[in-house]
């Protein structure tokens, strides 16, 4: 999960009082459709941003490939130049693909959560998002049982 998706979910959890421990005398907040609508609006805003980022990353990937092909043809007689261009291009492409993969995972999670917002009750949405957020953001560790 990227930092931006985590922030989006954290702002929702904050509105439903699930981002901090419950007080030792408090009551659970009652949820309404407005809470689910807030989450839906936040996720859609985040999804639009992520879609734009995917387009930028794909364009960058294509441009990098074209530039590399052009430079390789231009420097085809120099073994050293070909090695440097190939290595640099490969490294840059790996970075972009890793970034795209994270965006794609976020997109899948957001699609699922948006679908849940439509079909589930506010209480069930809150349970789902809270479980997802804490399981996805907490590093794996041995916990006392």
């Amino acid at each position: 999960m990227t930092h931006t998706l985590a922030s989006t979910l954290a702002s929702y959890l904050k509105t439903i009082d699930q981002l901090e421990p419950q007080s030792l005398g408090g009551r659970q907040r009652t949820l309404s459709d407005q809470d689910s609508q807030f989450l839906r609006a936040s996720l859609m805003r985040q999804q639009r941003f992520n879609n734009a980022m995917i387009v930028v990353a794909v364009v960058l990937l294509c441009a990098l490939f074209a530039l590399a092909a052009f430079l390789l043809l231009l420097q085809r007689n120099s073994v050293n130049a070909v090695a440097v261009i190939s290595g640099t291009t490969f490294s840059a492409m790996l970075g972009i693909i890793a970034f795209l993969r994270r965006l794609w995972l976020d997109k899948s999670a957001m699609d699922l959560l948006l679908f849940a917002c439509q079909g589930l009750s506010p209480s069930e949405v809150a349970n789902l998002v809270t479980s997802f957020y804490f399981k996805a953001t907490e590093p794996r560790r041995a916990v006392r049982t």
Binding site: Q22, R27, F134, V143
Partner: peptide, 18 residues
């Protein structure tokens, strides 16, 4: 009542309290 107020189950309870 207290544990039931944590909607995210043990992972949330552990992160926030335990």
């Amino acid at each position: 009542d207290y544990a039931k107020q944590f909607r995210g189950g043990w992972s949330q309870y552990y992160a926030l309290l335990a």
